[in-house]
């Protein structure tokens, strides 16, 4: 589904974010990418979203070279990917309901579809009572659950969660991972970046370990070994 072919990203001579990374993520997988800060995890994720372009190599989504896409095609690609960020990246002047509705509007859903689906997904992440709250009126865990709700609302083929538990306490972090596992059980591919050891042990899925921009381990049912 996603294929990194010898991808490097060099910001300057002394800052190599990715160094000849080659890896494949197949459909329906739950892949955790681990490593210290600066190992290249976030750069890897940014490449999939075309937020950063590789200095060398190619990144494919199915058979499409992501970085050769035109603006409109890129917009269409992003609609097939749900993203969860460590800092939530919610729209601050929109309510919980509107944040999710916006993602649906972006893909051209009708008002009726939005009115039918948004309350449902808010219930799913246990935010049914908070639909009229703005992000600044919500806790970290609630914001992250809202962020997941927004990521899954359009039933994307892949969910990318970049350090989704980084700003959360252990209880909320555990809840978020359980939601991501459930999403994966329903058939959606999940790519999770983290450096939370406890989380990985509860996931028991493939783990890719990165160090200094390189993939140093790729275990089918990995553990945190750094």
């Amino acid at each position: 589904m996603i294929y990194f072919n010898n991808v490097s990203k060099v910001y300057d001579k002394d800052s190599v974010a990715l160094d000849k990374v080659t890896l494949t993520v197949t459909e329906g997988e739950f892949v955790s990418i681990v490593g210290h800060s600066g190992a290249g995890k976030t750069t890897l994720v940014k490449m999939i979203l075309a937020e950063a372009a590789p200095t060398e190599g190619t990144v494919f989504f199915e058979s499409v070279d992501i970085h050769k896409l035109k603006s409109t095609d890129l917009t269409n690609l992003r609609r097939r990917i749900g993203v969860v960020f460590q800092d939530f990246k919610l729209l601050s002047n929109k309510t919980a309901y509107e944040n999710i509705a916006f993602a649906m509007e972006a893909v051209g859903k009708t008002d009726e579809e939005i009115a039918g689906d948004v309350p449902h997904v808010l219930e799913l992440v246990d935010l049914g009572q908070k639909s009229n709250h703005f992000p600044h009126e919500m806790s970290g865990g609630e914001k992250q659950r809202l962020s997941i709700a927004r990521a899954i609302i359009n039933q994307p083929e892949i969910i990318i969660a970049d350090e989704p538990t980084g700003n959360l306490d252990p209880v909320n972090a555990y809840e978020i991972i359980q939601i991501l596992k459930k999403i994966n059980d329903l058939g959606t591919t999940v790519i999770l970046t983290t450096h939370n050891k406890g989380i990985l042990e509860s996931v028991k899925k493939r783990v890719i370990t990165m160090e200094n921009g390189k993939v140093v381990r790729d275990d089918k049912e990995g553990k945190y070994t750094i």
Binding site: L49, E51, S71, T72, T75, N76, R78, R79, V83, K89, L90, L91, F102, A103, E105, A106, V107, R150, N154
Partner: peptide
């Protein structure tokens, strides 16, 4: 963020 969730320009 709007662009990342797939909103058109």
């Amino acid at each position: 963020v709007m662009r990342l969730v797939g909103a058109s320009k």
